[in-house]
Design a protein around this nucleic acid. Sequence first.
DNA 1: CGTTAAGTTGAAGCGTCTCAAGATTGGTGG
DNA 2: CCACCAATCTTGAGACGCTTCAACTTAACG
Lengths: 243, 243
Amino acid sequence: MPNGHRIKPPPHTHCTECPVRKLAWFEPGEEDALDRREALRTTQYIVPAKQPVYQEGDAPREVYTLQSGWVIQYKMLENAHRQVLNVALPGDLLAFRPNLDTPLDHAALTATEVTLCVFNEHSIHRLLSEFPELTHRLFEIQSAQAAQCRRRLSYVGQAPARQRIAMFLLDLIERLSVRGVDISQPISFPLNHEDIADAVGITPVHLSRISSEMRGLGIVDCRYNKLTVRDIARLQSLAHAGI
Amino acid sequence: MPNGHRIKPPPHTHCTECPVRKLAWFEPGEEDALDRREALRTTQYIVPAKQPVYQEGDAPREVYTLQSGWVIQYKMLENAHRQVLNVALPGDLLAFRPNLDTPLDHAALTATEVTLCVFNEHSIHRLLSEFPELTHRLFEIQSAQAAQCRRRLSYVGQAPARQRIAMFLLDLIERLSVRGVDISQPISFPLNHEDIADAVGITPVHLSRISSEMRGLGIVDCRYNKLTVRDIARLQSLAHAGI
DNA sequence: CGTTAAGTTGAAGCGTCTCAAGATTGGTGG
DNA sequence: CCACCAATCTTGAGACGCTTCAACTTAACG
């Protein structure tokens, strides 16, 4: 078990009651297949906020479904800069590789306290052979993750800072909405300026300037673990047209 | 059949003689399984240089293995900037999606004349059911493509221009070496400055300045469809330490 | 209420972009 | 073989976006 984690004592969350199971990797399926699938989930971990889930180079022989909380996946460069690759939200799959002895090419850090559903090599194998449709689901998830990475690469490579920030926030807002978060209200937002800056490839100082400007224009306010979206139309216009 | 392609008349290249089959998606396998697999390849296309293979939004009901030539995969932003996502080399898999009616999120353009081996929905399905180990191989390929995208995102987001260029060239050189290209000699290199600039997120003008500087230092020379690597150690030091 | 982490602001400098003119290369036809 | 053309690459000058460093302000938390 990785550093800083603790095994959640039973009773564990049941899949049938899991709020994110429709997003998670072992949807789709019949309601009554879930009991069997749940039995193949090894255990659940709880990791406190601001703790590593895994480091680059680790090769944990397990994969995780994020059941609750936020996780920041990132890569460190040799110049000590950090690129945030993804902000994982409930339902997202972490540390998946086709061979579990392949080392991970990136690290992951909890933004909040999180609950992880754990699957080891054996349980994955059993799941895939008992429920062959899950193989297809895994392909879809991998494919969606890759598409998200290409999107991020495109705007980090080609858009100016103002636009990158707008696109990053809109991506997140969209994914939160899918998860039932009401973004017309101020929401709890466990990313600080440094996290956002590292995701879009600018410095926190510059992010602060642009972010103050957006706040002044009544578009968004993201500070101190709160996000308030005041004018989503203008945010979209910023993201798409840069104005 | 997509625009600008033509169907290559038989005799097609045989898999047993294919120079890149060890890299391609239907390795691994027994030598004698290749005949059967080849029978499931629908056909081969030949596409001239500088022609589209597919556009963003297309949903061709087929996937391609690049048998020979180079292909540039990219995404256009609404501000008319282009991000080059990948330079596909022989053996690489193009347009793969878990559901072939999903539209593609990026476009592809030939850099040289290319030969594509074509697989349609039916043939993929037959291949995967006759050779179940190919499913695992597809996971590996998808996973490697995603890892490459994360790498690119990291240096485009976090490294200065000089370092990005060095990393991009080293990535390419490494992948060419795997394919048996001898980079101690000048090689044919069908990317112009604009292609490289769009891959690393700078302007062609700035690329030209840095590239002249590197040439002056006797590190690399990439112009006019030729690449000469003069000092790979210094190129690596540039990529890793920025000096 | 004090302490610490997080965000803000100013000033100066550097890296990258833009625009525009000029040079080099490879290809084509005379 | 040479002249010409188009595409590609190069170079300069000025402007702009983003970074750096450092001081200051604000919010969160016990």
